[in-house]
Each structure stands twice: as structure tokens, then as C-alpha cells.
């Protein structure tokens, strides 16, 4: 998970449950896709309760990031290549 922490991310939501993060992505972003836990995003296997919703907003990727002691954060990272890769999976 080290690579996620080194990305220039913006925290959209903190302290929410995993379900709240999923609901937020589905409501707030016109483009989203559902993936299973273990799916690789930014070269990291994603953790979560399936289905895991990932939002796309232009070149921004919005996804949940879970840490054992801090819960789930909803992060937003600008990365055109990753957004394009995810968009192709829809």
C-alpha cells in the first residue's frame, strides 16, 4: 500500500464506513465501475467489501483505501493513464 500513500491524493471522505464510501461514489460520480477485492489499482491490491465502487471524473480516479487502524478513506487521485485503463474495463 506504500505506493498509494506516495501518490498526490486528496481525501474526499474519512471516518466513514466502507458502505458509505461506496454509496458516495455511486451517487456523486456519473462514471463508476465495480470491482472485486484484490483488483489492482495504482499497482496496489484494493481492500474492501464487494462490490467495490471506483469513481471516474475526467482524469481523476476516486477509490476507497482501507488501513487497519484508520478505517476507510475515499481518495481522489489525478492520473490520466489509470483513469483510461479503468474506463476501458467498464
Amino acid at each position: 500500500m506504500g505506493c498509494i500513500e506516495s501518490l498526490p491524493y486528496e481525501v474526499i471522505m474519512r471516518g466513514g464506513s466502507f458502505k458509505e464510501c461506496r454509496d458516495y461514489v455511486r451517487k456523486q460520480f456519473r462514471e463508476s465501475l465495480d470491482v472485486q477485492p484484490g483488483f489492482k489499482i495504482f499497482d496496489t491490491h484494493i481492500i474492501g467489501v464487494p462490490p467495490i465502487s471506483i469513481g471516474l471524473d475526467g482524469d481523476f480516479v476516486i477509490f476507497p483505501f482501507t488501513k487497519p487502524c484508520h478505517g476507510t478513506f475515499l481518495l481522489r487521485v489525478e492520473d490520466k493513464a489509470e483513469a483510461d485503463r479503468l474506463r476501458k474495463r467498464k
Binding site: S17, F18, P37, G38, I47, G48, V49, P50, T66, K67, P68, C69, H70, G71, T72
Partner: peptide, 9 residues
């Protein structure tokens, strides 16, 4: 909640 996410994973 994080623990639930890890278990589901």
C-alpha cells in the same frame, strides 16, 4: 469497519 473490509477481502 476496516476489519470487516479485510475479512471480506
Amino acid at each position: 469497519d476496516a476489519g470487516v473490509s479485510y475479512a471480506a477481502t
